[in-house]
C-alpha cells in the first residue's frame, strides 16, 4: 500500500510538471530564482547578469552613461522614416508607430506560426519588394535598436491563446528545446541559465532566464561582436559554446524558443537596446 502511494505521488509530481502551462512554468522559474537570489527585486531581472553581479554591474553602469548603441538607434530612425523604392515604408506596415516591441513574439493565427519582430519587419519588406535583411548581423540591428528604444517601458505580455492548440504546441516546442541537452558538452539552456545561474563560465556570470529577452538587440563589447546583435545571434552563440550546431536564425526552432523564453519575462519592462560584455 505504501509503495503504491509513493508511486502514485511520483506519478502525480511528474504529471504536474509535464503538463504545466505557461503560467505555471513562469511561476516555477521565479520561485526557483527567488530561492537562489532572495534579495534581487523582480524588476532587476531585466538587467540580466548585472542583477546578480555587483562588480560587472559597476562596469556596465559606466558604459550605459555613454551608450555604445546610440548610433544604431539613430540609423534605425532614418531607416524607419525612409520610404522604400515603391514609396511605401515601415510606417505603412506598422501604423501604430515604432513603439511596438511589446507586441512580439505573438501567435499568428493566419500563418500558424510564432511571429517575431524581425520576421514581421522582413515580411513588410518582402511585401514591398525590398530585399529581406539578414537576421543576425547588420542593418536589421539598426531598425531593431530604434524600435527597442521607442518601446522602452512597455511591459512584456506574451500570450499563448488557449483556443488555438497550435500556439500551445509552439510554446511546448520551445520549452522542450530549452531543456534538451545538446552538443558535445551535453548541456541544455537550463543547465547554464537555471541550474548554474550565478556561477562563472570563464569570465562571465551566468544570468537567469527570466529577463533574458527584455533588452534586444544588444551591444556586446566582446571582440568578435563589437557591435549590436540580435537575440537569435545570441542563441547561435550559446549553442555553439556547447559545441552544438546552431539552428537557423528565425527558423521555427528559435522562434518557438523565443516564444517560451519571452513568456518567462511577462510583467517585466522592456529596456532595450542593451549593453553586455
Amino acid at each position: 500500500m505504501k509503495k503504491l502511494l509513493i508511486s502514485l505521488a511520483v506519478l502525480l509530481v511528474t504529471a504536474v510538471s509535464a503538463q504545466a502551462g505557461p503560467e505555471e512554468d513562469r511561476m516555477a522559474f521565479i520561485k526557483y530564482y527567488k530561492g537562489k537570489f532572495p534579495n534581487v527585486p523582480m524588476e532587476e531581472y531585466a538587467n540580466g547578469a548585472y542583477a546578480i553581479d555587483p562588480v560587472g554591474r559597476e562596469n556596465w553602469e559606466a558604459i550605459e552613461e555613454f551608450p555604445p548603441y546610440e548610433p544604431f538607434i539613430d540609423r534605425g530612425q532614418v531607416m524607419w522614416e525612409k520610404p522604400f523604392a515603391n514609396g511605401k515604408g515601415y510606417k505603412d506596415c506598422f501604423p501604430d508607430g515604432p513603439a511596438i516591441a511589446h507586441n512580439y513574439p505573438r501567435w499568428d493565427r493566419e500563418q500558424g506560426l510564432v511571429m517575431t519582430l524581425p520576421l514581421a519587419l522582413n515580411q513588410c519588406r518582402k511585401a514591398n519588394s525590398e530585399k529581406p535583411l539578414k537576421y543576425k548581423k547588420g542593418p536589421i540591428n539598426d531598425i531593431l535598436s530604434y524600435i527597442a528604444f521607442q518601446s522602452r517601458g512597455k511591459v512584456v505580455n506574451v500570450e499563448v491563446p488557449k483556443d488555438d492548440p497550435r500556439a500551445m504546441a509552439a510554446y511546448e516546442d520551445g520549452k522542450k528545446f530549452y531543456f534538451t541537452r545538446r552538443g558535445q558538452l551535453n548541456f541544455s539552456c537550463a543547465t547554464c541559465h537555471v541550474q548554474n545561474t550565478g556561477l562563472k563560465v570563464r569570465t562571465e556570470i551566468l544570468s537567469p532566464s527570466v529577463g533574458h529577452i527584455t533588452h534586444w538587440p544588444v551591444y556586446r563589447s566582446k571582440v568578435d561582436w563589437g557591435t549590436v546583435g540580435t537575440l537569435h545571434r545570441r542563441f547561435t552563440g550559446c549553442n555553439k559554446n556547447i559545441r552544438a550546431k546552431p539552428m537557423k536564425a528565425q527558423g521555427p526552432e528559435y522562434r518557438n524558443l523565443e516564444y517560451f523564453l519571452s513568456y518567462l519575462s511577462n510583467g517585466l519592462e522592456l529596456n532595450g537596446p542593451g549593453a553586455r560584455k
Binding site: A18, A28, F29, T180, R182, N186, A190
Partner: peptide
C-alpha cells in the same frame, strides 16, 4: 561517431523532462 552520438543524445530525450532542481518548484 559524432553523428551517432548526437542522434542518440537527441532521441534519448524525445520526451520533455523537467530537471529535478526545477521540478521541485511546481
Amino acid at each position: 561517431s559524432e553523428g551517432n552520438l548526437g542522434y542518440q543524445q537527441a532521441v534519448s530525450q524525445s520526451k520533455l523532462e523537467i530537471p529535478s532542481y526545477l521540478k521541485a518548484m511546481y
